[in-house]
Design a protein around this nucleic acid. Structure first.
Lengths: 232, 232
DNA sequence: GCTTTTGGTCGTCACTTGACGACAAAATAT
DNA sequence: ATATTTTGTCGTCAAGTGACGACCAAAAGC
């Protein structure tokens, strides 16, 4: 257990480290860097082994003593909260909202480009696993902020689509959400089965996005009409 | 900890138990029943608290001593495997495949009825949480059997839709899977955000299913065409 | 009745696991 | 060089935590 970090640390200083760090850069980093390194390692670590994984193994993965973690984060819970804030909440980019509302491009292109980015920057393995672990473990950790961000996104998507297609939307905002989820859920679920179920999709990511977007666009008008018709 | 089960057990036999059991039916069940009761309780328990939850608390929830669990299941792992087999793999019903292929009804009706059932019997809170916990914790636990079942389902759905619409499908089976996932993922993701993110959907379940199915059907033809066009 | 079987509990062992006090050593200041 | 601050480790405590041997008591067989 300790053997690995020992071995790295005990090397005489004439060796400038052939195997690169990120884990166990021998010793003595300034506060900010060490904290950042721990956070980075913790992200991968908890994404892999779950939020119940042990601090001793995390320390090992960081190449530092377990005790050191407690200098930077008072408790494990605080560490988890920091990881969550930085990696989960930090992944959303405001630009996306602006780009999605840039009507000089057709909606199909905007949606396709957005979801390409979104799959890379948000719905990757690390983010997804952390988000699911957090959602499963602690009810309030995941949904609150995220859902408010996502809901704005859904409204934008639906409104932009409706504008381009000249469709009049119902007033009920939750209906708009539900419509938006049709697309967003499709793609989120694609990410889930890819990264979680490891179901090997033979189709490349781009094609899946294109297909989902077109299915959404093709079914948009009937979907809106359908909702209006079936309104009690 | 022990207090609750003690209190129940120590009651004199003149009281026929006002609070009903399932947890802690005083004592002495035949083997099969006790095993079943433990399995039932364990399902709810692990669905709530995750696969890393402790056997002592499970025993408490069952109203029996922790030691007793080990009479029925050699290790915690075995218990988890039993829960998984019974609750996750056992939820799929063969009838669904038959009903989905009953061409005397329109596809829209078949799909709508099927997903209503599926949401109730499979994609409920308990099943979903267990499945996600299992998928996150152990790579091989979830995907194998499930994915083979689901993939058959996806092919059936797509083929039935194509048949009704007179659409010719590509030969590539994974393309069919991907098309089917557009619908199945939409609904699965609806269940996830409902039971996991606790996002309160104002629309009733039936309407969401109807909307997803119609969106899928409306976009089906373009989707197939699109795939054929973009085939390299 | 008495014995045997079987469903159930108590107490405990060995190992984890979060947390932290005490101390060492590298940087930095003086 | 010497003192001080900062970064890091060792060792340990207390509370879990899976597993199990030893034992007890309710049914069931005879």
């Amino acid at each position: 257990m300790q053997a690995r970090s020992e071995a790295l640390r005990d090397q005489p200083s004439d060796d400038r480290r052939t195997s690169e760090p990120d884990v166990a850069p021998t010793k003595r980093l300034p506060q900010a860097e060490r904290r950042a390194q721990i956070l980075r390692t913790a992200t991968d670590f908890f994404a892999d082994y779950g939020l119940t994984a042990q601090t001793r193994r995390l320390a090992e993965a960081c190449g530092v003593s377990q005790r050191l973690l407690y200098r930077y984060f008072p408790t494990k819970k605080d560490l988890l909260a920091a990881v969550y804030r930085q990696e989960i909440l930090g992944a959303f980019k405001m630009v996306w909202f602006l780009e999605l509302q840039d009507r000089s491009k057709p909606v199909e292109e905007r949606l396709t480009l957005f979801y390409k980015d979104y799959l890379n920057d948000v719905l990757n393995r690390k983010w997804l696993r952390l988000f699911l672990y957090a959602s499963l473990a602690d009810a309030e950790m995941a949904p609150d902020y995220i859902s408010s961000v996502i809901k704005k996104l859904l409204v934008v998507i639906v409104e932009e689509t409706a504008a381009e297609k000249g469709v009049t939307l119902p007033n009920d905002v939750s209906a708009l959400h539900e419509m938006g989820w049709t697309l967003h859920g499709s793609i989120s679920h694609y990410a889930i089965r890819r990264h979680l179920y490891r179901s090997s999709s033979v189709l490349p990511e781009d094609k899946v996005v294109a297909m989902s977007v077109r299915t959404f666009l093709a079914g948009f008008q009937p979907m809106v009409q359908d909702y209006i018709d079936h309104l009690d």
